[in-house]
Amino acid sequence: MSIMSMSKTLFKNLFHGPFTVQYPIKKKDSYERTRGRIGIDIDDCIFCSMCQRRCPTGAIQVDKAASSWSIERLSCIQCNYCTEVCPKKCLHMENQYTSPSFGKVRDEFIKCTNTQSPSES
C-alpha cells in the first residue's frame, strides 16, 4: 500500500514557491541560438533573390528594381534557411520574437541608394 507517495514532492513545492515566471513583468532569458525573427542589414544586401527562392514558405520577397526586401512575419517559420544561403551574410536570426499582431504583417526594408555612385549600382 502506498497512498501518500506524492506528499514529499508536494511539501517541497510548498516551500519552493512558483516555478513559473510572471510573464509580462519578468521575461525568460533567451539563448544565443534562440530563433526569434529574421533581421537584415539592408545596406549589405545585393538583392540576389536567393532567400526568396529558397524560402520554404515564400515569406520573403525581393524587388531588385525598387531595392526592397520584405518579409511576411507570420508566414516565416524561423527555419534559418535564408540566413544560410545568403551570399553576403546580411541576413541574421535575432533572438527576440516578433510582437503579436492582429493581422498579417509585412515588414519592408528599402535600401537607400542615393549615396551610391552610378557605377556601383
Binding site: 539563448y31 541560438r33 534562440t34 530563433r35 524561423q78 527555419c79 534559418n80 536570426m93
Partner: peptide, 12 residues
C-alpha cells in the same frame, strides 16, 4: 533544446 538548436519544439 532551445539552447542547442534555437527552437523549443521544432529544431530545424
Amino acid at each position: 533544446f532551445e539552447e542547442t538548436t534555437g527552437g523549443r519544439v521544432i529544431f530545424s
